[in-house]
């Protein structure tokens, strides 16, 4: 049976038709780049999303700091991850790219800070 997947790899949002072949392989149509095929395969077998959120800090000037997963994480872990993030408190200063959770539940996905504070830290 054909399935339609809308690629989320970039804002283009290609509509990709996925066809399962008799030998249990997949054929893809409609992707403008190879990332699309990788995405469509994953969306069918193991859907993932990048998660972004804010985490509490110890600073009055910047009470919350933004974070993201450094890769897309399997959808079924998102709820647990968010719960853990909302429980956390980070000590500033912090730098963009700094890891706050390593290899979350053995998914190979890290959570990193996406904003440097304070800015003197950039110099």
């Amino acid at each position: 049976m054909d399935k339609e997947v809308i690629c989320l790899s970039c804002p283009n949002g290609c509509h990709i038709t996925v066809q399962e072949t008799p030998d249990n392989n997949y054929q893809f149509q409609g992707a403008k780049c190879e990332r699309g095929e990788v995405y469509a395969y994953e969306e069918i077998t193991d859907p993932r999303r990048v998660v972004t959120a804010v985490v509490q800090t110890n600073s009055e000037e910047m009470p919350y700091i933004p974070v993201k997963t450094d890769k897309a994480i399997p959808k079924r872990y998102i709820k647990t991850l968010l719960t853990e993030l909302y429980r956390k408190k980070i000590n500033l200063p912090a730098k963009c790219g700094q890891i706050i959770i390593q290899n979350f539940m053995d998914t190979g996905v890290n959570v990193v800070i996406t904003r440097t504070f304070p800015l003197d830290f950039l110099r």
Partner: peptide, 15 residues
Amino acid sequence: TGPEFAERFIQEIIK
């Protein structure tokens, strides 16, 4: 993300 995009420019501005 938005903050990361901004930081690419902020870094240059500060320097």
